[in-house]
C-alpha cells in the first residue's frame, strides 16, 4: 500500500478511502479550529436542510439551469469544434478557447443589456462561461487524433467530409461524455456564482450566499457537502453512461 506502482484491489481501495475519510473527520471533530464548525454541527445542519423543501426546491432550480446550460454549451461546442477542422472556422474556435481568460463579472452588464430577464441572463452567462472550457477540451481531443485514423479513411476512399464524420463525429462521440464529465465541475462552480446575480429565482448558489451573509457556517459547509456529492454523482453517472452507450470504451483484449 505504500510502495510506488503497487496495485491494490477495488475493495481494498474503498476500505482505505473509508478509513482516510473517517480519520480526517475524527481529527476535525477532536481539534476545533476557531469558528470552523465541527462535523457534528455540519451533520445536524445537513439533517435540517434535508428535512425541508427549501433544499430540494433550490437544488432543482440549480440543476435545471445547469443541465439547460450544459445542453446548449455542448451543442455550441460541438458545432464549433467540428467546424474547427475547416480553416475558415479554425480561428473562431481558437477565439472561443481564448475566451477562458474573460471574467464573467466584467460581462454582466453587457449580458444584462442583451437578455430579457434574470433567467436568461443566468443561462447566457453560464453558457458563455462553460463553452470556452468545453471547446478547449474537445479541440484537444481532435488534435490528439492520430494521422492513421484519417489515413485509414483515405485508403477506404472516403471524401474529406466523410472522414470528418467517421473520425471526429462518430469516432469521438464517447469523448463528448468525457469532456462533459471533466468540465461538469466548472459548470457546477459557475452556477453558484451566476445565481448570486439574480437571487429571486433561488437556487443553491442563492442559498449559499444567504447562509454566508449570516455567517451560518454549518449550513454553508453542509451545502458544500451536497454540492460536492451531486458533483461526484454526475461524474459517476456520465462515466457509466459513456461505457453503456459506447461499449468499446470498456473493451479489453481477450
Amino acid at each position: 500500500m505504500f510502495k510506488p506502482f503497487e496495485k491494490i484491489s477495488k475493495q481494498n481501495f474503498l476500505i482505505m478511502v473509508g478509513l482516510q475519510v473517517f480519520f480526517i473527520l475524527l481529527v476535525w471533530q477532536l481539534s476545533p479550529i476557531g469558528l470552523i464548525p465541527q462535523p457534528t454541527h455540519v451533520l445536524s445542519a445537513l439533517g435540517q436542510l434535508l428535512g425541508t423543501r427549501l433544499l430540494i426546491d433550490n437544488l432543482l432550480v440549480s440543476l435545471l439551469l445547469t443541465l439547460q446550460a450544459m445542453l446548449y454549451s455542448i451543442l455550441i461546442t460541438l458545432v464549433f469544434s467540428y467546424l474547427s477542422v475547416i480553416p475558415f472556422f479554425h480561428s473562431v474556435a481558437q477565439f472561443i478557447v481564448k475566451c477562458r481568460y474573460l471574467t464573467l463579472t466584467g460581462l454582466i452588464f453587457i449580458f444584462t443589456l442583451l437578455t430579457k430577464d434574470g433567467s436568461q441572463l443566468k443561462l447566457s452567462l453560464l453558457i458563455f462561461g462553460i463553452v470556452p472550457f468545453f471547446t478547449t477540451s474537445f479541440l484537444a481531443v481532435i488534435l490528439r487524433i492520430p494521422a492513421q485514423e484519417y489515413e485509414l479513411c483515405q485508403t477506404l476512399g472516403y471524401s474529406r467530409w466523410e472522414s470528418l464524420y467517421e473520425v471526429i463525429v462518430i469516432g469521438k462521440a464517447d469523448q463528448v461524455f468525457e469532456m462533459v464529465r471533466q468540465n461538469f465541475a466548472i459548470a457546477w462552480m459557475m452556477i453558484t456564482m451566476v445565481e448570486g446575480l439574480n437571487m429571486s429565482e433561488g437556487g443553491i448558489g442563492a442559498l449559499l450566499i444567504k447562509y454566508n451573509k449570516y455567517n451560518d457556517l454549518p449550513h454553508v459547509i453542509a451545502l458544500q457537502a451536497i454540492i460536492f456529492g451531486i458533483g461526484l454523482f454526475f461524474d459517476y453517472l456520465l462515466g457509466l453512461l459513456r461505457h453503456w452507450l459506447f461499449p468499446y470504451t470498456m473493451a479489453h483484449k481477450k
Binding site: E149, L152, Q154, L156, G157, Y158, I170, G171, F246
Partner: peptide, 30 residues
C-alpha cells in the same frame, strides 16, 4: 489517388469504435 490502393499499415490500424463486422461492412459498401 488515395483510396486506389488497399493499404495495410504495419500496426493494422482499425477504427477503435467499430466492431469487426461494422468495419468490414463499411469497406464492402465502398
Amino acid at each position: 489517388r488515395p483510396g486506389d490502393m488497399g493499404v495495410i499499415f504495419q500496426n493494422y490500424y482499425q477504427f477503435g469504435w467499430r466492431t469487426v463486422r461494422q468495419s468490414l461492412l463499411l469497406a464492402a459498401r465502398r
